[in-house]
């Protein structure tokens, strides 16, 4: 299954500098009006790692990833993709990255096939390669049956999948995926996990944000916990979770658990 996805080979990514971290975030910060959304985040995503970014709602995950991928200009800090400065050399850096942003629209009056093709052509790829890879990606993500349907008529899960295909088309060195499993059915999620694992095995790096701890613990080898715009813990999964489960460690770090005794009237017996 994963062979259908273009490999992140060096020949696809001539801009990458050897021996550098896949993504290196240094002191990124952003404020919106009074609210400090991200307060000096440092992260090091090693090349070839499968990195999970976890945090409660509103922790600044999306803002951090947007700044790291060149979608949102940071107030402070720097982001390097394989040694290329995202805000200094945006065009070169973006060639190395495949990005699945969360909460943005797609050009949804295109068919699924047209949208993936469009993403490929925008990257400056030649038509034959785009056509071939689009077919492969649609097959891998089980969207061949709906290739000619307008994206606006897709379900939420299918929309996620087609956006993921658009991010994979140019075989990037680094995949930045914001909530890739939201609304995706279990079978498709398993397929996507296979694709991503195969992609990492073939030399690519992935950073995903999620709030499903179980998924991150099973899938990723590294994790960072982020809350209120700051990194609370980062490292390999085993370093971060210690003896307990990732979920327990997360709750311990973030806090905010309330005992459920307050809602006594909710009990039916």
């Amino acid at each position: 299954m994963s062979s259908l996805v273009p490999p992140p080979s060096d020949e696809n990514n001539p801009e990458a500098k050897a021996g550098t971290a896949a993504l290196s975030i240094r002191g990124l910060a952003k404020r919106f009006g009074e609210k400090i959304a991200v307060n000096g985040v440092d992260l090091e995503v090693p090349s070839g790692s499968f990195y999970g970014l976890v945090g409660p709602n509103g922790a600044g995950k999306t803002t951090t990833l947007s700044m790291a991928t060149g979608l949102l200009r940071p107030d402070y800090g720097q982001a390097l993709v394989h040694g290329v400065d995202v805000w200094g050399q945006p065009l070169e850096a973006k060639k190395l990255m495949g990005i699945l942003p969360d909460g943005v629209r797609l050009f949804d009056r295109l068919t699924g096939e047209q949208l993936v093709t469009y993403a490929g052509l925008l990257r400056g790829m030649d038509r034959d390669t785009v056509v071939e890879r689009t077919g492969d990606l649609l097959r891998a993500l089980d969207l061949t049956q709906d290739a000619g349907t307008l994206v606006v008529d897709y379900s939420a899960g299918m929309t996620k999948k087609i956006a993921l295909a658009s991010a994979l088309i140019h075989a990037p060195k680094l995949l930045v995926l914001d909530e890739p499993f939201e609304s995706v059915d279990p079978v498709s999620a398993a397929n996507i996990r296979d694709i991503l694992s195969g992609y990492v095995r073939s030399g690519g790096s992935v950073i995903v944000s999620s709030h499903v701890m179980d998924l991150v613990q099973r899938m990723c080898d590294h994790v960072a916990v982020i809350a209120a715009g700051t990194v609370l813990a980062a490292g390999t999964i085993d370093e971060v979770r210690g003896n307990g489960s990732l979920e327990d460690r997360f709750v311990e770090l973030v806090g905010g658990r309330t005992t459920s005794e307050g809602l006594s009237w909710l009990r039916t017996s």
Partner: peptide, 28 residues
Amino acid sequence: KRAGGNLGFLGRFPATPAGAIAARALTY
């Protein structure tokens, strides 16, 4: 459900970023 195979304007304009944008905009 409709299977693919019809790229519309995207198949007719030059396969460059500008060509793709023109094709997409015209589709819109």
